[in-house]
């Protein structure tokens, strides 16, 4: 028992501390740059500042769900079915849901100011909401109980299906007529229609939120490892107790 306690003293490592520090610095710049150093947009005015949170959180939510899909595939394909992959998948989905919630909330506020409405059942908004709900479902399925292997098996199947929604969300503005504007940075013609300082702050936001994502996922998956170890320890203790009873 002492060994277990010593092994899991905390979930921080030098690497996570570095990520944390980088996230603070980068997001500090996004906060200052987004609010004070970047100009108003010619059409949208100050409302454009929401973009520095909305776009990076949307991209990182996509990234998080892709990481969940890839980690789930690695768990499935791997001969050892390493639970580390399953924990990364779960942790990444949790962080992805958090970022997607931020995307929906910031997008809704942005929509109220520019479109004149908080919400419309537009293809981009609808598919994003559906993606969000899908991953909440994924997290619910993970919590349904059973052994760690059972949890990994059923959630990996869902993760591999759910990740297919991402291209649909991304290309929804091209596939259907949409109120939501088309991509600016990832536009197919490669022409980025954004002033330099705005683009710099936006990309710095992507970097900052990426590092924050890495920091959150590494901590969360280590906490999950501790929970799994605790469960295993509890079973070991129960077995030892019963053996002792049988011997008595």
């Amino acid at each position: 028992m002492n060994t277990e306690t010593q092994t899991f003293k905390g979930v921080g490592t030098p690497a996570t501390r570095l990520y944390g520090l980088m996230a603070i610095v980068a997001l500090g710049w996004v906060f200052l740059g987004g609010l004070f150093f970047t100009p108003e947009d010619a059409v949208q005015g100050d409302a454009v500042r929401i973009m520095y949170v909305h776009v990076p959180t949307a991209w990182i939510a996509y990234l998080a769900f892709i990481v969940t899909g890839v980690a789930s595939a690695c768990w499935m394909i791997g001969k050892k079915h390493s639970m580390g992959f399953d924990r990364v998948a779960g942790a990444s989905a949790e962080v992805g849901v958090l970022f997607m919630a931020m995307t929906l909330l910031s997008g809704s506020l942005w929509g109220r100011i520019t479109w004149g409405t908080y919400w419309v059942w537009d293809p981009r908004l609808t598919t994003t909401a559906f993606l969000f709900v899908t991953y909440i479902g994924y997290l619910a399925v993970r919590g349904l109980g059973g052994t760690a292997q059972q949890r990994a098996r059923r959630s990996s199947v869902i993760a591999l299906l759910a990740v297919l929604e991402i291209p649909l969300v991304h290309f929804s503005v091209v596939l259907w007529r949409s109120l939501h504007q088309r991509a600016t940075v990832l536009s197919p013609d490669g022409d980025i229609k954004m002033d330099g300082i705005m683009l710099f702050t936006l990309l710095f936001g992507v970097f900052g939120f990426s590092v924050l994502f890495a920091w959150l996922v590494s901590h969360r998956q280590r906490i999950m490892a501790m929970q799994d170890a605790q469960q295993t320890t509890a079973i070991d203790v129960a077995v030892a107790e019963r053996l002792k009873e049988a011997q008595a």
Partner: peptide, 14 residues
């Protein structure tokens, strides 16, 4: 009901 679209270009107010 009127919904305002905004383009995908962003530039400084001038």
């Amino acid at each position: 009901r009127i919904e305002v679209k905004h383009s995908n270009s962003y530039s400084e107010a001038n």
